[in-house]
Write a protein that binds this DNA or RNA. Structure first.
Lengths: 139, 139
DNA sequence: GCCAGTAGTACCAAAAAGGATACTGTCAAT
DNA sequence: ATTGACAGTATCCTTTTTGGTACTACTGGC
């Protein structure tokens, strides 16, 4: 949620970075936006893509994204329920941010453990702290 | 800190976005990295640039960035103390991420209140939720 | 009749993050 | 003699965020 950060935005103008971060601050918002870049998704569709998120968390994060103006929630009044989530123009404007995050993650953290061998040795030598431990864990 | 997210990285591989976010997760890390992009900084130098951060928080955030391998802390054993902070190569690799965040923030949230009039009317009409309220507040 | 799928809520508990305040020790300048 | 700059710590407390479990209502298929 952007409440505490929203405050700081006023207390501390000039910080565009923090302002932007306040919109994707929340444990699952980044991934959600990433998946929504691929197009409209339904609630359970997203749930399947984020297996470790609880229903409650998914709902909350989506609502916060909606509140922030990044995501649009469309309820089709049918039974069984049918709810679509997609990006607003503002949400889509986040694409460069999300993409650069995805690239960084792939390059330096490399989530897909089945491809862990692809880690470039040169970069690896630059790693420290968490990143180093991360790679150490899966070596 | 990246501990809780680090866990999810393992539980939920494939999510490069979350992995990357876990490195800048923390209320001040984004700004700190942004300021460090400009070059080496000393502790109180950063403090002056982030007037609303407490000493304790600044220390913590810097230590976490160091632990994560993004920032290097250099202690010059003199008195009075002299400590330099600068980006590691891994930290510098975050530059595209930080820059895109800064651009987004400037474009869509526009922290600098003294330039609030520059908000482009076209974009404004696309705003919803927090973003809308943000602009409403300063209109 | 029972189960699965749809999209959620409600309630309680735990953990994590952040903030406030006060304190350290040395030196240089006023 | 006092103050300020330097770079922090220590302690306590509050807020925020996240997780766990159970529950709703309705329908279509077996």
């Amino acid at each position: 949620m952007s409440r505490p950060r929203a405050k700081l935005v006023k207390d501390f103008p000039g910080c565009a970075v923090e302002a932007a971060l306040s919109f994707i601050d929340g444990k699952w918002k980044g991934v959600l936006l990433f998946h929504l870049l691929a197009g409209t998704q339904r609630f359970n569709e997203l749930r399947r893509k984020l297996p470790s998120v609880t229903q409650r968390m998914l709902t909350r994060q989506l609502r916060e994204l909606e509140e922030a103006g990044l995501v649009r929630r469309t309820v089709h009044p049918v039974v069984p329920p049918h709810v679509d989530y997609d990006l607003t123009p503002l949400g889509r404007s986040m694409e460069p941010v999300i993409r650069s995050l995805a690239i960084w993650g792939r390059t330096y953290v490399f989530c897909a453990q089945d491809e862990a061998h692809v880690v470039p040795p040169k970069e690896t030598t630059e790693l420290q702290g968490d990143a180093l431990r991360y790679f150490a864990d899966r070596a």
